[in-house]
Design a protein around this nucleic acid. Structure first.
Lengths: 151, 151
DNA sequence: GCATAAACTTAGCCATGGCTAATTTTTGGA
DNA sequence: TCCAAAAATTAGCCATGGCTAAGTTTATGC
């Protein structure tokens, strides 16, 4: 590929692309945490820090620090030595994150990616998919399931 | 959706997923920089810090700090007040990053995402697509272009 | 009911990647 | 040639998100 397919564009436009990625990036941890906390509340009845930390694969103090930030920013509430709850804002974010995650996951399956890889990739991809692309994904999932039904 | 589609899995497995995302994350800035530097060298003959910073939409000192890290880690070389060069390692990473980026971009176009959105999304997505998924993308791009040719 | 274990917090460390302000070096034009 | 503008660097700030070690609180089991 000697001639690039994406020619050098206007510097301003390119800067906006990167800015958008940086913004998405700031939300990643937040989304992962509220999604996980919501999962834990659903399945275990409550979300304990020890469990959050274990599932994220990080130390308890690291998880605790981020939980504090989430509390400061209004996504969760929790009293010292107690379990963690989602605020309305946190619950909304958890719901929309889960929906995105599920769509990306199912989309990958629909196009023929293996279940293991779909699980891995969807976790990384979910934070960077625009609404437009998500819409296309949904459409293709639907087409795929209809095709399956016909067989 | 009252019953989650992705049931709570083993904590260890889940931790590995998040660890993989964190690793990918560490590489993101590196990949973006070498890809951009390579683009600049191709099209302008050289990569100046001022241009890198402008295109990333960040200040010169911020870009400079990351360039120092890239130099420390063997991706680029540059002497004070001079332009930036890629090492072999850096060039290799730039090439593979660009290839990924192009595949993701073309794939999004192939499934019907608009050009503007494809440009935005591919920048965020490229760092999180596994080789397996990339292979599926490539296959679908090919199918799409063959379908186009038939018309 | 009390001792021990588990959970959580606090304190303090580090790297990354943003920023501004101020300085230094290089470059280009009159 | 030399001076001003542009480019790059340095210094120092901040937030995030990792970590370990040590201390505190809560829960558990004998």
């Amino acid at each position: 590929m000697s001639s690039p397919d994406r020619p050098l564009e206007n510097a301003d436009q390119q800067a906006q692309v990167f800015e958008r990625v940086r913004k998405a990036h700031q939300m990643e941890a937040t989304e992962d945490y509220v999604e996980l906390i919501d999962d834990l509340i659903r399945t275990q009845g409550e979300a304990r820090l020890v469990e959050v930390a274990e599932r994220l694969g990080i130390s308890q103090p690291s998880a605790g620090k981020t939980i504090s930030r989430l509390q400061r920013d209004g996504y969760v509430t929790s009293e010292p030595y107690r379990s963690i709850f989602l605020t309305d804002k946190g619950k909304q974010l958890a719901d929309s994150s889960r929906e995105r995650h599920d769509i990306v996951f199912k989309f990958l399956l629909a196009i023929g990616v293996s279940e293991d890889t779909a699980k891995l990739d969807s976790e990384g991809l979910e934070h960077h998919v625009s609404d437009e692309t998500l819409g296309v994904f949904k459409r293709l999932i639907k087409q795929h399931s209809e095709r399956q039904a016909k067989k």
